[in-house]
Amino acid sequence: MVFEMEGYRAICQEKWAINKTIITGGDSDFFARKLKKPIFANQNLVLLGLNRILDYNA
């Protein structure tokens, strides 16, 4: 899975010059340690976003 993510990132870099990778979910810390390039990893990104929406609407 790590090699697949690295390959997909390389393709995106070539085609669109994308330099940032964001990984979310329960295994994001595992993949963040295994990938060669720096990434943004947060296990609770969706929950943080939902909480921000809740706070905004309160």
Rank of each mutant, 00 (worst) to 15 (best):
L45K: 07
L45Q: 07
R33L: 03
V46A: 13
R52M: 14
C12V: 11
V46W: 06
K20F: 04
T21F: 02
E6W: 01
I22V: 14
G26P: 03
P38R: 10
L45G: 04
Y8R: 07
K37V: 06
I11Y: 10
I39R: 02
I39C: 14
K34Y: 04
N42V: 00
L35V: 12
V2P: 00
V46P: 05
L48T: 06
T24I: 10
N42G: 00
P38T: 11
A32P: 00
W16E: 09
E4H: 08
D29G: 06
L35R: 03
K15D: 06
K36H: 11
A41T: 02
E14F: 04
L54P: 00
Q43N: 07
D29E: 15
P38M: 08
Y56V: 06
K36Y: 10
R52I: 10
E14I: 09
D29C: 04
A10W: 05
P38Q: 10
N44H: 14
G7K: 11
N44G: 05
S28I: 03
T24N: 05
R52E: 15
G49Y: 09
T24E: 05
N57L: 14
K20E: 13
K36N: 13
E4A: 12
K20P: 01
K15R: 14
G49H: 12
R9C: 03
G26M: 03
C12P: 01
I18E: 03
N44C: 05
L47I: 08
F31W: 04
Q13K: 15
K20C: 04
N42C: 03
F31K: 01
I23N: 02
L47P: 00
A58D: 11
S28K: 05
C12S: 11
I18A: 08
R9I: 08
Y8V: 08
I53L: 15
L45R: 05
A41S: 13
E4L: 11
L35F: 04
N51W: 04
N51M: 09
L47Q: 15
F40I: 12
A41P: 01
S28P: 01
T24Q: 06
W16V: 11
A17K: 15
L54K: 15
R52C: 07
D55A: 09
F40Y: 12
Q43G: 05
G26F: 03
K34E: 08
E4D: 11
P38D: 12
Y8Q: 08
G25E: 08
Q13W: 06
A32G: 01
K20R: 14
A32M: 07
F30N: 00
A58K: 15
K15Q: 12
K15L: 11
N44T: 10
R33W: 01
L47F: 12
K37R: 13
N19H: 13
N42L: 02
W16M: 12
P38W: 07
D29K: 14
L48K: 15
Y8A: 08
E6D: 12
G7S: 10
L48M: 13
D55W: 06
G26W: 03
T21I: 08
K20D: 10
N44E: 12
S28G: 03
M1D: 10
I18G: 01
D29F: 08
A17S: 13
